[in-house]
Design a protein around this nucleic acid. Structure first.
Lengths: 150, 150
DNA sequence: GCCATCGAGTTGACGTGTCAACTCGATGGT
DNA sequence: ACCATCGAGTTGACACGTCAACTCGATGGC
């Protein structure tokens, strides 16, 4: 039976991990924003759409693969549609496809190298190959158990 | 479409880590919100203030220890002040202290056990003791190098 | 056929966070 | 003494994200 409360040690582990990721996330986003006028959320949607055949996905599928709520995806697509990065197209009687536009694809292609470089610089290259594998494997372990739980 | 600067392996490591933390963060926040009507940001401010002697801190010091921008802290304190969780008091000719109110302290005390339990349940207990130490040590390594950078 | 329910999508209100521009007293070089 | 600059704090515009409530066609039990 797990004890309630956290030890000093565990609390520090949690706070450090949390803070590290917040900081990393902010740095990555600032680089994206400054170099390409894209948010992390924009980039995620563009990248996911670019990886599907036909560069289109049903809105709810897009939300699923991104791990977002449907209304978050809806608002995001609305903002991106206003900027011409994606288009929406009816699909069947009640469906909606999100489609990557030429402009969206161009934005992604422009952003990708600098983004990848920043991820490498701030994350990948700060760890050895073994450490990166360890880190990813622990993250996967937690992610799987979180997603399994519902 | 993937890697100019990252291998498939590295990209997966990054995406998994990123997604894990986003999910974890959301779960923790939902529990806090539902049980105590506090956001993660609220909780952070309350916890930091409660740990200082006098339960007060200059606004810019609070921003520093939280790792936030000053205007984020300002907006946050404004919202919390409206709800009676903190108070602001002038301090010297140009300074401003954030002070934990009785109500803020009561909120924190009410939220703490459930929050700690959730952190334990979703994070600490999903890893062995050795894994948790590994994870925290890698997070610390990255955090230090990020904070050192500027 | 009828009705209840479901799931995808939409909407609006609101809290959260960033950025740039501003105020204003303190500080320091000349 | 003067003026430039600094740092803490403030503000407003706007993007981001959540929640709850809503629409509406599809589906299934009776």
């Amino acid at each position: 039976m797990a004890q309630l409360g956290l030890t000093e040690h565990e609390l520090r582990a949690w706070r450090t991990s949390f803070r590290m990721v917040e900081l990393l996330r902010n740095r990555i986003e600032q680089q994206l924003q400054a170099s390409s006028d894209l948010s992390n959320a924009d980039y995620t949607v563009l990248a996911l759409l670019s990886e599907t055949p036909g560069r289109r996905l049903r809105a709810y599928e897009l939300a699923q693969v991104a791990g977002w709520e449907k209304s978050r995806m809806h608002h995001q697509l609305t903002r991106m549609e206003r900027r011409g990065l994606v288009a929406r197209e009816r699909c069947g009687s009640r469906g909606m496809d999100a489609v990557l536009t030429e402009e969206g694809l161009a934005s992604l292609k422009k952003a990708l190298p600098g983004h990848a470089e920043e991820v490498r610089r701030l994350f990948v290259d700060r760890l050895t190959r073994e450490e990166l594998d360890q880190f990813a494997s622990l993250a996967t372990k937690i992610l799987n158990s979180l997603e399994a739980e519902q």
